[in-house]
Design a protein around this nucleic acid. Structure first.
Lengths: 342, 342
DNA sequence: TTGTATGCGTTATCAG
DNA sequence: CTGATAACGCATACAA
């Protein structure tokens, strides 16, 4: 049988209450008795029972991480993994554990309601893949400590955190401009693809500020598949003058385009430069490896962890933040425009 | 204030003890009173307090998943994610939660000792990335419910589960043989790379059974990098007759080799066929996409979840299993040998 | 600064 | 089949 707080108290010749205070450095305990107690605790190999402590303090020191993890998640959404690592890291440092739970947005409401009322966890980190208006309503009604990863696409009073895709777009544009490119083309996703749209906004804004242009007819839309990337090439080649650099809204487009370019023996980046967003694994294995604007998702996870703890302590605070420190990962699909060209 | 078991008891006109039995269907309660109780519970919206229950039952209904998650884990080790999903799935079904915890093998001993003695969780799922002899000793000494994912490379009394790489090797060889290939080459990892070694064993065994050969000089060793894959090509081309099909022990080798082949305009699979193991994300985006022997890691995760629960209930049982259902994912780097060839 | 008393909400034991 | 009662081990308000 493991030693309890009473055993320590007995051995140290004090009361259990004093032991509790001494070991948690709450309340005031004489330096001398504190030493005595610590010694006794050590001698007995005393370890506080987390279950009893949870019960007494009415807390579990755990946060649930809820997401609709896709099959082959590591590929479909590698970011999710990095976010989780970040969240776990922060929580861990603060003495909290992270419980991973997979569910669909459909099941999320019932689950969360139950988990919350049963006091299974102290709070929730919610990936946007499970977010719905109903869930949002539940959270607000019950005042549940939470943080949503990804901005919900409906009016809400939730606390959320998201990357700033607009800023990433700016960075991509500035990078290309600095290398000397002047004629651009943007291949985006569907009209309702907010991520693609925001990246485009950033590109436009940055170019404008630098006195460069991105005419309307040089912004293409697509379904964000490999095939779409390939299809885009045809339209590209008809443009005059031919674009020197193409900004692809996402990896599939970029990859499809790259394969199409290679099939036509168009050199990258000499003939056409390429840049896209997010450092997907395979983007470093293409030939040449892809230059991308990357976002530190681990960092965002860490911040999310911090925020959910903040909500726990100060339930009233509302947080809605764009956070992001996008960085250019310079690889082979962009290069300084050489003098003899153009 | 949420309703407690006493509120339900009061409303139903019975004792808390009876309520507990009725709601947990433990002990015997008259059908009639059971109805009464359930009705009362529903009316009050009663939800049992998990913290109190954990305290009373001396269990947390949680398992920790320990691993040394690498940076960019989704790429470096996509399998890890699938395993976690599988573990979580099984545990969840059985009413257990999964706590994710990142640590180094160095920190694992201290952490586990503390987590166990503080009753933070009921058991552990340990990825081999954190396994050491010391940890093994701790587990045995304290009799900690556990399951290790990956066979430890030292003598042990642990319970572990691993994939059968030998079987995967067999499958790869049989696949190639069935397509009509006769001259093979195996490009493996370092001599101490057990995974590579086992795959080779499987290949050898299957070929032998089919009356085919893999001469010693056709087994290459490497450091498992892209560059090594490329380097292997030179040796390959000196072999006479030239191998029709190359079995690469892992993805980096295969990818490096593929890029080298393309640089030399050697056609895949017409001139040289390629096969490797594990369906890494980018292997489907190569040109042509890579044929691989894949392993269902999600399934292994599920099994691991089942096993740790079994250890929890029957601590005496020892489990050491190879489990695996490798499947050929037929893509573009292998094809039936056409009659006019050879 | 220390100790006493009490509560946390449920389960389990055992007598009725 | 039911209920009284005792844990479970710790934290905390309050009194000393």
């Amino acid at each position: 049988m493991p030693a309890t707080i009473r055993d320590v108290a007995l051995k140290a010749g004090v009361s259990p209450a004093t032991v509790s205070k001494a070991l948690n450095s709450s309340g005031s305990v004489a330096e001398e008795t504190q030493q005595k107690i610590k010694q006794a605790a050590k001698a007995l190999g005393y370890q506080p029972n987390a279950r009893a402590r949870n019960f007494a303090t009415r807390a579990t020191y755990q946060m649930a991480f809820l997401a609709d993890f896709p099959f082959d998640a590591a590929f479909v959404n590698p970011h999710l993994f990095e976010i989780m690592r970040g969240v776990q890291h922060t929580l861990d440092k603060k003495g909290y554990a992270m419980v991973m739970k997979h569910l669909s947005s459909k099941d999320a409401i019932a689950y969360m309601e139950q988990a919350w009322s049963q006091h299974l966890v102290d709070g929730f980190v919610l990936h946007m893949s499970v977010m719905t208006k109903k869930l949002s309503a539940l959270i607000s009604r019950e005042n549940i400590p939470h943080i949503v990863i990804g901005k919900p696409n409906f009016d809400n009073h939730l606390c959320w955190i998201d990357t700033d895709n607009c800023l990433s777009g700016e960075l991509a544009a500035r990078h290309l401009a600095e290398l000397g490119y002047k004629d651009f083309c943007f291949v985006g996703g569907r009209a309702d693809d907010m991520i693609s749209w925001r990246r485009l906004q950033g590109v436009r804004q940055a170019l404008q500020e630098m006195g460069l242009e991105l005419p309307h007819e040089r912004v293409l839309q697509s379904q964000s598949t490999l095939a779409d990337g390939a299809r885009a090439l045809k339209k590209l080649l008809r443009m005059k003058p031919r674009p020197q650099a193409v900004i692809c809204a996402n990896n599939p487009i970029a990859l499809g385009l790259m394969q199409a370019l290679q099939a036509k023996n168009i050199r990258i980046p000499e003939d056409i430069a390429l840049i896209t967003f997010d450092s997907y694994p395979f983007s470093m294995f293409t030939e040449p490896p892809m230059t991308v604007v990357d976002i530190n998702m681990y960092e965002m996870g860490q911040e999310a962890g911090r925020l959910v703890l903040q909500k726990l302590r100060h339930p009233a605070t509302q947080i809605q933040t764009y956070i992001t420190t996008p960085t250019i990962v310079l690889r082979g699909t962009t290069a300084s425009v050489t003098p003899h060209k153009n």
